[in-house]
Nucleic acid binder design. Structure first.
Length: 264
DNA sequence: ACTTGTGGATCAGGATTTTG
DNA sequence: CAAAATCCTGATCCACAAGT
């Protein structure tokens, strides 16, 4: 027999009750009983009728009962259905959108992620977790070298999106300022607008044929630069972890809370 | 008239919370 | 800490409406 999709599984009444149950549970952090659901659903049903629907919802895996004499709590499956089918999102007023946008610091990707995480935590009163999207191969705008000391050179990369990454290169010998400028000029001339994948492909043979005294430095820069941008694409920021202490469902379970904090 | 589905009321019992 | 109060559940029965 063909399995019905979730919205088809639930009639309008069951959907209203499930939505009410999840909203009450999010608001209060306590299992929701049939009497409360009967009162707050706005459906004018008796608790007994609500229990019948709740039994169906439990059988379908949308809700669960912590113990026989408690109300019901949503399961992950229930939350998924709530988010996919029941949650209604109202568009924000334009002035609120501007307000939020003004709070985001766009000057640096890392600072943008951090401020977005703080803003999310502030708006939801929960922990805010923001993960940078895994970018498709960033393109290089500019490469610079800066001599730090003997056999140590700072590589500075600027991507097309304005992201800046640094890497220290440990070189086999000491490079003069003129050599560093020459290497940077060569790479900027040949590599601007390319991804590191493309740079590797293009320069691999050229550098071998070039036999220049700065090829070792350029090779090291290409390798380290690729790694630096790869690391940067997995950036994330967490804010407002302390808000989790205010969540009754979590704060009453220290083991669960400790496990959660160990993830941060 | 009979069957079926839906919804309400009641009851007994379990688990938790409150009270003395 | 034990008893009482409260809340919730599943089971059962009954009433009613719609379909056959």
């Amino acid at each position: 027999m063909e399995r019905r999709s979730a919205p088809d599984q639930l009639d309008q009444r069951a959907q209203v009750l499930l939505k009410t149950l999840i909203e009450r549970y999010i608001a209060e952090g306590q299992p929701v009983g049939s009497r409360a659901l009967s009162k707050f659903s706005g459906l004018d049903l008796s608790p007994a009728t609500v229990r019948n629907v709740m039994a169906d919802l439990e059988e379908m895996g949308f809700i669960a009962s912590p113990h026989t004499s408690a109300g019901r709590v949503p399961t992950p499956h229930g939350y998924r259905f709530f988010v996919d089918c029941l949650l209604t999102v109202r568009p924000l007023p334009q002035e609120r959108v501007h307000e939020i946008e003004s709070e985001l610091r766009r000057d640096q990707p890392q600072r943008l992620i951090g401020s977005a995480s703080q803003l999310l935590s502030h708006l939801t009163h929960f922990a805010g977790v923001v993960v940078a999207p895994r970018r498709l191969q960033p393109r290089i705008r500019r490469i610079e070298f800066l001599s730090l000391s003997d056999k140590r050179v700072l590589l500075i990369l600027v991507t097309g999106e304005g992201d800046v990454q640094n890497r220290i290169l440990f070189t086999g010998r000491t490079y003069s300022a003129a050599e560093l400028v020459r290497a940077a000029n060569y790479l900027n001339r040949h590599c601007a607008g390319l991804t590191f994948e493309e740079i590797r492909g293009r320069l691999h043979d050229e550098l071998r044929q070039l036999k220049s005294d700065v090829t070792e430095l350029m090779n090291a820069a290409v390798e380290a630069g690729g790694e630096a941008l790869e690391d940067a694409s997995g950036q994330y920021a967490i804010s407002g972890e302390r808000n989790l202490l205010e969540v009754e469902d979590l704060s009453s379970d220290m083991a669960r809370l400790r496990k959660l904090f160990s993830l941060f």
